[in-house]
Each structure stands twice: as C-alpha cells, then as structure tokens.
Design a protein around this nucleic acid. Structure first.
Lengths: 328, 328
DNA sequence: TTGAAAGCGATACCAG
DNA sequence: CTGGTATCGCTTTCAA
C-alpha cells in the first residue's frame, strides 16, 4: 500500500506538505505542488479513507436501512440513493432488515462503528437506538420525523379513491397496510375521505406487512372472503398483480368483472396482462432526493426544505374499467 | 463517543488489558475481565471499527459490484450476499454500475480506499484494476476467473433447448445475450447443441445488454422481424414477460400461437399471466454462497471448491404449449 | 498477568 | 510557505 509517507519521500517534502497539496488546504508553493503531483502519479497513490475517517470521526459512507430488497419499490429507493451518493463522493452501506426488526439496531450499531456520516431509513427507528448521526427518512415512517422525503400519501389515497369511484365500484375492497406506518394511515385516510364523501360503500381488508412472501396466501384469503368483489384497491403492485392473476385463474374477467388498482408503480406492473393501473410513487426520486438532503445536512449546507413531499399520480393502464362518472 | 480509554479508566486497568479482554487474546485475569465487562456495560461501549481497520489494514466490509439494481436477478444476488455477510459479521458496500462501465474502476478504487476485505462482482473486472484483494465472481463473467460461483449455464441452455424442442417449436427465435459474457455464451452453446442435434431450425436474435430500459423497443423489433414466430427462448424473464404482453396486445394467443420461455426465475414471473415458464437460476444461493466462499478465503479457511457450479432447473408454468415429443 | 509505547495513515496546529 | 508532531481509537509487541 502506497502511503502519504512514500509520496513525501519521493517528492522530497514533508507529509504535511503532501497533505496540504492533496487537499488544497493551506499554503503550498507551486514548486512543491508539482513535485507532489509527480510523485502521486508515479506511485499511483490515493489516500486511505480509513485513516481520514479515523481522524475526522466521520466517513464518506451512508447507511441505508430497507425492509426488503426483494420488493422492487425499495430497490428503486436504494438505486436513487446510491446514484445521488456516488455523484457526491459517498458510498452506500447496505442494511437489509428483512422481516426481522431486531436487526435494525444491529445495523445501526454497525453503522456507528463504521462512523457513517449519516443514515437513510425506510423503516421506523426508535430514537434511543441512534446515538448521534443525521437521519433522513424515506417514506413517512413515523409522525415525529424531522427530516423526511416522502410521497404524498394522502393525495395518493384520494386519487385511488376517486379513480375507483368514477368507475362503477360495485362491491369494493380496500386493502390497508400496516397502520403503524404513517404512510399507510395517510393513504387510507385519503381513500376513505373520497369514498365517504361520495357515499360509496366498501370493506376493509387488512394486510400486516409489505413483504413479498406470504402474499399469495393473503390473496387466497381475500378471494375466499369476497368471492364476488367487483373492485379492489391493493396496497401495492405485488398484490395488484397477484389479484389479477388469481382472478384470471378463476375465470373472472379483468377488468370487466373485477377491476384492480395497484400502488407504487413498480416496474413489473407494466409487464403483467392486463397491464396494471397503479399510483406512481416516485421511488427513485425519493431515494435520490433523500440522499441529497442528507448530504447537504452533513456538509452543513443550508437546506430549503426539511420535509419534502412529492406528488404522486395515476398511471392508467388496463386493469380498470372505463370511466362512467366524471365528477371525480 | 465512548472509547477504550474511557473503559480502561473506569475499570482501573490499562487500555491494553481492555483490548485483550475484549478480543479474548492474551492473558487477562478473571478479576480484570470482570471489571472490564462491567465498565463496558456501564458505558455502553462498542469498539470503533475504523480504528481496528486502520490497524489491521482490512475492514469487515465487502464490496459488491452489480450491473443493475433494478433487475430483480441482481437484487436476489445482492440479497443472498447480504444475508451471508451479515451472519458473519461483515457488511456490504454497494456499487451499482448501471450501464456505465467506467464506474467499475471508480468503485473498485473506492473499495480499496476503504480497505474492504474482499470483492464480490457480477461484472467483468480488468485484472489491472485490482491491486490486491480477494475477489469472487458471481456468475461466470469471464473465462479466467479463479474463484467463482455460478449457475450451470450450459445446462440451462440445454434445458431451454430441449424444453422447446419437445413442444412443437415451429418458427423458433433464440434470443442471445451479450457474447462477451461467458455465461451468455455457454447458455447459447447449450441451447444450440440440443437444437442442432435434433435438427431443429431457429433464428438468432441478439440483444446487447441485460438492462431493463430499452427492452420494450427490443421486443417491438423482435415482432417486426418475426411477426409469425411460434416460439421464443428469451434471454431473461423481463424479456419473457414483455414478449407475452406484446403478443397478447397483438391478439396472439399465448401459448397456443406463441410460446415463450424465460430465464432467471425472477419473482415477478409468477405474477404475469399466463405465468411465465422459465429456467430457475438460484440467484439468492449464488449470492449467498459466493459471500461464504469469499469470507472463508478472507479468514484463511480451507476451501473445498474454488469454483462452484449450481444446477438450474425448469420451472414449468403456463407460457409453454403441451409437450408432444418425449425424447427430450 | 499487566501496562507502556509504537504503530496503522492521514490531518492540522504551531513554530519557524 | 514548510516541517515536526500530536491526534484519531485500537491492537500488539515487549519488558517488567
């Protein structure tokens, strides 16, 4: 390993001068600078981040906590965050919590041990777990979050409600996600506000997680409970796709007999048939912007907005019936 | 930040003793050990990994290079690797290369600067980029890889060929992936070996990457070139799903008029309709085992196999016609 | 069995 | 402008 000491020796200056030249901090004569540059080039030197981190007590790494990497929504989040970070010279330390929320504190601990500069979390973290490091939440994970980038869930819920309301809902099932998540709560509030206002009746069907596995069974249950339903607002696109599939398997025409609306705009939604209508959550953007926000915070830049709410929009494909009612 | 020094002060022993107690290295009296343990607990101390890394010149982090996080195959790889690593006390530093292969060397550089203990790569890396760190490849990315975990691509190709061969191929299109990837080459060889042996004719259709974006256009092209094709062996499930969709959109019945075989067994394959038949590549296992192999290498354990080839298998769903020919 | 001390690689203060 | 040096937190000789 080539160190700053090797460079200083070859360049014939002190390590202090090398460091100054490298970081463009303090005075360095043109002559010294050139000697250092030549030596750096000749040796193929690049500074060791670990040593820097030890000195500064702060690395150029960011921890990312996601509940489930096999869900494309979170992958998109991660992807956006990674892009923003690598553009800014940071790297991503991954924490895939799976369904095991005990792992959260283990990951946070590990992040701290590595002196990460900050934390990006798509999961609720108990305050006491974090000793001190800036956190930005992706998705509104709890109510008291200060820094947060999230989609407008209430609006998303409203759009979902209005979209179905305008299309002959018939027997309507509204799937609801885990209510300890603010985001699921807001979405439900939005949907019900519209439905109630229009006097449309519905049944709620609760699902306790966003995990992929087990979803098939949940859908079986759904069909068992409501074999004659006419419309479903699903909690996400995975459920949306599964419901379509289960319907076709049972010979129920989609969307004629059963219409389905997803949520998230996951990439595979456009691959299924009939293509899934859904609410587009700008997952990549959420990831990207939250990383930008976090880095700005870390670098002490002024931040215009501590809470960024991104609009969502309807992506109309083929899993919904024609609109019959325009007062939505 | 609580340091080993704070612990030593509270425990009334030297930092050397604390370190020995913590690492169970060297002699430490029962009495000292207890004092240290008590102090550690009282202060909530946990060691700083950065300092450890600086001393050892080797961290507990592994770099992972993937071409595209939005492709579920690579997500599964990452997920498996992450699980294996976190079980073994390592963390994952993520490098999402996207289509920009210039980024590879940037990431590798960054990994080196952070003294990662090793590298997991699903991309071909030029040897000269790596100064010195153990590498394990996921997927056979090139021919000269020493340490590697990959699916049996030749076998996969054979299965694909035989599966189609047994089902009235008619006009058959074989999509082929980027031939600079050993894995794509092997797969093609496997397929053609079977097809040629059975005297089945086919046309090749080349795709130059596994990226998701642009795939729709590629599929359009495919249908333009071969509007009357009867069978397609797709390069992956994304293409498989898109082909099914494009077919149904054109009123071409699947599988009656056009049958489609995917590759990868991506999770969404079971969500589309008709559900996609595919070749199961144990992506999660590949990720998991490659991480295990790498960690064993890092920890100097004996390794039974430097190259692990995992069998693949056919996942029969509904996108293929009935078998009419059993000599496959 | 213990502690003092010398690093690991880089930064930044301070004196010259 | 430059170089010597203390420092970051931890590990590991080496003597005692």
């Amino acid at each position: 390993m080539v160190t700053i000491k090797d460079v200083s020796k070859l360049a014939g200056v002190s390590v202090a001068t090398v460091s100054r030249a490298l970081n463009e901090s303090g005075y360095v004569s043109e002559k010294s600078r050139r000697k250092v540059e030549a030596a750096v080039k000749e040796l193929g030197f690049y500074p060791n981040e670990v040593a820097r981190t030890l000195y500064h007590k702060k690395s150029k790494m960011i921890g990312l906590l996601v509940p489930d990497l096999s869900n494309p929504y979170f992958t998109a989040l991660a992807s956006g965050a990674e892009d923003a970070l690598s553009e800014r010279g940071f790297s991503l330390l991954l924490g895939n919590v799976q369904d095991n929320s005990d792992k959260i504190s283990t990951y946070v601990r590990n992040f701290e041990q590595n002196n990460v500069a900050g934390l990006l979390s798509a999961l609720p973290i108990e305050a006491e777990v974090i000793r001190s490091m800036p956190v930005v939440n992706l998705d509104r994970v709890s109510d008291r979050d200060k820094y947060i980038v999230h989609a407008d869930d209430f609006q998303g819920g409203q759009i979902a409600g209005a979209t179905i309301a305008a299309r002959n809902p018939g027997q309507l099932i509204v799937m609801v996600g885990p209510q300890e998540l603010q985001t699921a709560k807001d979405r439900l509030d939005g949907t019900l506000s519209i439905l109630d206002q229009k006097g449309i009746t519905y049944s709620l069907f609760e699902t306790d997680s966003y995990q992929v596995k087990g979803a098939t069974e949940v859908v079986e249950d759904l069909f068992k409970q409501y074999p004659h339903m006419d419309s479903v607002i699903a909690t996400n696109d995975i459920y949306g796709a599964l419901i379509i599939q289960a319907a076709l398997k049972r010979g129920i025409a989609v969307p004629d007999k059963l219409q389905v609306l997803g949520y998230d705009n996951s990439s595979f939604g456009s691959l299924v048939y009939p293509a899934l209508s859904t609410i587009n959550q700008p997952a990549y953007d959420i990831g990207y912007l939250s990383a930008v926000l976090l880095v700005n915070r870390i670098e002490g830049k002024k931040i215009a907005q501590e809470q960024i709410k991104l609009p969502v929009n309807l992506v109309l494909r083929n899993s919904l019936r024609e609109k019959v009612n325009d007062d939505a």
